[in-house]
Design a protein around this nucleic acid. Structure first.
Lengths: 236, 236
DNA sequence: CGGTTTTAGTGAACGGTGTTTACAAGAGTT
DNA sequence: AACTCTTGTAAACACCGTTCACTAAAACCG
């Protein structure tokens, strides 16, 4: 079964421990606490040994970001699967709520992955995770609304590119979409929804609402209602 | 004139230099480069001397945040004053564009002030700067629209509190607002606008749009159009 | 099996960091 | 002139990322 040699197994195990130690440090003590020496201390080895696994501290942080994204994607998919209502609107709500809950429960991870002026955009990065869900959800809402709705002409080029991204994402799930379903108007509203979703969650996680909000969840719900209405889902 | 003693003047001058050195380091080399020793080097003094001015590295960073906020506020007010159209919609657009331009031109500052999981919310923090502008702008649009519009009851309490914040902000400019003008429906839309504005700008600065956007400005303009329509300003 | 190569880990070192402490020198005050 | 307060220094401590020479064990190979 295990085709790996003994050494490869040990190496994989150590690498797993490194990632887990880094993650624990991030969660419990913040980004600045994720130091090579602290990680090494947790594993009972010395700091230079980590260079056998990662080229630099920065590379290790990048790996950490990828792990976090993967975990969040898994959490979102799990919440999506847990919704058995069959109604698309409910599924969208479930995913959005899961995103908010995850961000609030993992503020350090959210800040690291989301709001650092890092490299332009990794292939397996954050937004793509969320929007790989958007494709199938749109696909399952076959109403061809928003057709012919006015979308500024300057945006067409970018929206068509995004349309292709969504089409590819859906294709991986074995579904092909007609242009009437995935029309530009709807795509535009998806982007707008992403802006609002991210805006609300980031403001809440970073505590940057312009006034004290006693309980932001109803405000989030209210925003979701409007988003879903804009995007063309019938009221729940 | 100068009521300060010689020593007080020197101290104030040194403090000014410290702030400026910190700012330069942040802009030119990123947040990690804002080091006590680097700042001291720029001033030709040693690092421990800085402890005569700030309790800790963290306190200095907090001061830096306040400076940045003040500068951005000044930039926004300048752009507001530069718009002589007299039309409120144009003024709103000017401020929003100024915010986006400032964030894109100062990504390091934006990231530091905006997206670090710091203390809940400083008194002179970011959102408040922007929304101190919102009050007067709303005030100058006397149309009592959105009256009686449905706003979820759970949000009333928070919105009333925010209403008071805006009223106070406007009062500082010597204006008092009637409830019909500053009604809850409009307040709600202001908050929603802040969410969208922040969402777009943060996504753009951090490069977290889910697909490559060739030129995000038209998308921003388009969002502003919809925002202004939602909030009840007549089309420009 | 014996010899060789590859690998994972060590320990010491370099230059960097925030911070504390003891101390010196000048400015201001009486 | 004597005293205090302020502003700076120098040395030290513990930590950081990173490099380098080196060891010991694992894997490979004839």
């Amino acid at each position: 079964m295990t085709e790996a040699t003994r050494r490869e197994r040990l190496r994989a195990e150590t690498e797993r421990e490194i990632r887990q130690a880094a993650r624990t440090l991030l969660v419990e003590n913040g980004q600045d606490a994720v130091t090579l020496r602290a990680i090494a201390r947790k594993l009972g080895i010395t700091a230079p040994a980590l260079y056998r696994y990662y080229d630099s501290h920065d590379a290790l942080l990048r790996q950490l970001c990828d792990d976090i994204c993967a975990d969040m994607a898994a959490a979102l998919y799990a919440n999506l699967a847990a919704d058995t209502s069959g109604q698309v609107g409910c599924k969208v709500r479930a995913v959005c709520h899961a995103f908010r809950r995850w961000a609030l429960a993992h503020p350090q991870e959210f800040a690291l992955v989301f709001a650092s002026p890092r490299d332009p955009l990794g292939a397996d990065q954050f937004g793509s995770v969320f929007l790989q869900l958007a494709g199938p959800l749109i696909a399952s809402n076959e109403d061809a609304n928003h057709v012919g709705e006015e979308v500024p002409a300057v945006l067409h080029e970018d929206l068509v590119r995004f349309q292709q991204v969504l089409r590819d994402a859906v294709a991986e799930h074995g579904v092909t979409l007609a242009d009437e379903v995935l029309n530009l108007g709807k795509i535009y509203h998806v982007v707008q929804s992403w802006v609002r979703l991210y805006g609300h969650v980031a403001l809440e996680v970073f505590g940057r609402f312009p006034f004290a909000v006693s309980n932001p969840e109803p405000m989030f719900d209210s925003m979701l209602d409007q988003m879903l209405a804009d995007i063309g889902f019938q009221e729940n």
